[in-house]
Design a protein around this nucleic acid. Structure first.
Lengths: 148, 148
DNA sequence: GGTAGTGCTTCCCATCATGGGAAGGTCAAG
DNA sequence: CTTGACCTTCCCATGATGGGAAGCACTACC
């Protein structure tokens, strides 16, 4: 199987397959005489594993660990679960940050007429809100936070 | 005021102030004889505006528009509100994507013993789950989606 | 007047995962 | 044998941010 077919079969783009090989997430593919990368069913299986983990938001580094655990028949399921739980915690943090932003924005937007008039509480807030770092209780003023 | 003081007063790092100037988000700062950037209170005001917008997750492009509207005394509040609502919608999309991931992960993790035993439903799922693109109803199997 | 230390300047590099695109070789169908 | 689809490597771009180096400016102290 060439890289194009492998891509279709796995849902991972050819670009990313080469990239994953380059950074050592996957082993270098076997090559045909013309130096074309060739893939077996087991390789596709690995790529689909990667695709699934990626869809669930795992980083390449986490996927490296997960792949190692996957290939280790004697791994402890606790090790896998720990990674998953840590990732869930990180996603929850991001979600909380986003929720804080939307809460503030919804509040501001609800007070904005949104018509032809120039006065706008949203801009007023941006212009005069205290810095996050100056506010003792972040959640006191419709909390704010960073996504990243 | 030099860039360091401006940074402290605005909550925007010196690095980012120079970057914002470079990409045209803010006007080039006035310079001292020694070519040091100097900032007035109005510049700090603008930087704090930017800081606030950034904290609420707006992109540089969106901030460009917001700054233009801010400086336009005759703007329609509807224009500002539209940007805010669009941004809220985008944040909601990201939140939904994250929620879908955590739902799947929590489901998988809850079925994983998380002890010393090797069998792990999380890895089993990664290894055998169908591709997102192959699933007709995404939400049918604990929906999945991308953050970005 | 030196000197140490801090702050400013510009310039380059790195992140993270992904894609675009060019230049050139390979393969299969007509 | 040509055409088109596919493969290869290599370089560049994204977005917002930080790190760090080399060199110049300013401040404070002796």
């Amino acid at each position: 199987m060439n890289i194009g077919e492998a891509s279709k079969a796995s849902g991972v783009s050819s670009k990313m397959i080469r990239y994953y090989e380059q950074i050592g997430l996957i082993a270098p593919a076997h090559r045909s005489e013309a130096q074309y990368r060739t893939y077996e069913d087991t390789d596709i299986h690995t790529l689909r594993f990667i695709r699934r983990a990626r869809d669930l938001g795992f980083s390449v580094e986490q996927m490296k660990t997960l792949l190692a655990l996957w290939h280790d028949r004697a791994r402890a399921s606790g090790d896998v679960k720990a990674i998953a739980l840590e990732h869930i915690a990180e996603l929850d943090r991001k979600a909380a940050a986003i929720a804080a932003m939307t809460a503030t924005l919804r509040h501001l937007a609800s007070n904005c007429h949104g018509d032809g008039r120039p006065d706008c509480p949203i801009l007023d807030d941006f212009a005069d809100a205290p810095l996050e770092s100056d506010v003792p209780e972040v959640s006191a003023r419709f909390g704010r936070a960073n996504i990243g």
